Computed example of a mutant assay.
Amino acid sequence: MHQTAVVTGAASGLGYELMLLLVKDNYNLVLIDIDEVKLEDIKNQLQKTTSCNVEVMAVDLSKSNSAQIVFNTFKNVEIDVLVNCAGFGIYGSFVDNNWEQESAMLNLHIITITHLTKLVLQGMKDRDHGKILNVSSLAAFQPGPMMALYYASKSYLLSFSEAIANELKGTGVSVTVLCPGPTKTCFQEVVSSASSENKISFNMACPKAVAAYGYKAMLKGKVVAVPGNFNKFLANLPRFLTRNRTTKIVRKIQEKNREKTSSVADFENDVSLIKKSV
């Protein structure tokens, strides 16, 4: 029998790539995204190429109680895999940014993901079977001036995932948190073009490769998955430097890349800045 996977942010980027990997493993799918047109296109294509059942739901997960709405819609479905991939970023000074956008991002990254995980988790635990993949970011490992709330929300997701993964040991349910660095997805279309997330091309990862890495980690029950050796180095940087120092480094990189497109030379300068600080 087909197992069932729920994927949020499934219409594009990492969510879409993870959905394709689930299709290859013959999962029935529940695809959640704000983009109804793309969801319907994906459903129509999958119905032509796979025997898996595909359900879609267009919903803004940044809205209050959206997790409960999703869960109620599919409450009769036994969910074997939950992929929390929906998210977006906001660049700029905290004091100057728009609160409505910021609160929507916080609600999506923290409240909705936490609530949906809680709702789905009970059934998984009762059946002694299930896998959860939360998509965080390399940003989770340090403070991020000029994207303060984005970094903080991703840090929450990392900490939350690690904690409940520990609580669930021995239950048959695993939790994995994927923490990619810059990845060529539609994230770049949403976050401000001034952000260094949009300026670094040398270290920009392929979404297919990142998704495959995270998917493999989920299947193995690995808790924290950081794709790429340089990203692993950056994730561990706060262990060797003070948090104050790493915060200053992130600020300098953001500001240096604000007015120009980063080249390989620019990226190497950023690496040099980091190495001089270690």
Rank of each mutant, 00 (worst) to 15 (best):
V223T: 14
L237V: 08
P180C: 09
K184C: 01
V173M: 06
Q188Y: 05
K220C: 11
N231Q: 11
F230S: 06
V173K: 06
L219V: 11
M147F: 08
P227F: 01
A163H: 11
V224Y: 04
S193N: 12
A148N: 10
E162N: 11
T185I: 01
R243H: 10
T176F: 03
E162S: 12
I249K: 02
F202Q: 07
K222Y: 00
V191L: 10
K260A: 13
A152G: 08
V190A: 14
V177E: 05
T185C: 04
Q188C: 08
F202H: 12
V250G: 00
K208P: 00
K220M: 12
S174K: 05
A211N: 00
K222I: 12
A165N: 14
N257T: 14
S155E: 02
Y215E: 01
L178T: 06
S174Q: 10
L158Y: 03
A148Y: 01
Y151A: 11
S196A: 13
Y213F: 15
S155K: 10
T183P: 00
N269A: 15
S263C: 04
R245W: 02
G214Q: 04
R245N: 14
I164V: 13
L158S: 03
T185H: 02
D266P: 00
A217K: 02
Q188M: 14
Q254I: 05
S263M: 03
G214K: 07
C206R: 11
P143M: 08
Y213D: 02
N257G: 13
D266Q: 07
F230C: 09
A205T: 01
L234G: 01
L157N: 03
K154P: 03
S193C: 04
A209E: 15
I249C: 04
S159W: 06
T242M: 04
V223R: 10
N244Q: 15
A211T: 01
P227N: 12
E167D: 14
A265Y: 11
N166V: 15
G170I: 04
F202N: 04
G170Q: 11
K208C: 08
L234R: 09
K220R: 15
T185Y: 08
A152F: 03
S263P: 02
Q254S: 13
A225Y: 00
T176V: 09
E255L: 15
G172S: 12
T171H: 03
R251V: 00
A194C: 14
N229P: 09
S153T: 12
P182G: 06
S201F: 09
I253Q: 01
S192F: 01
Q142C: 05
R251C: 00
K248P: 00
T246S: 14
M146I: 07
F230D: 07
P180D: 09
S262D: 08
G181Y: 02
R251L: 12
Y213M: 03
G214L: 07
K256S: 15
F240E: 11
L158A: 10
G214E: 06
L237K: 05
K208F: 09
P207I: 01
V191Q: 05
E162C: 13
N166R: 15
V250H: 04
N244V: 10
V210D: 00
P182N: 09
K154D: 01
G144R: 00
K169C: 13
D266N: 12
T171Q: 02
T247L: 03
L234E: 02
G181S: 06
G221R: 07
D266G: 14
P143D: 10
L237D: 07
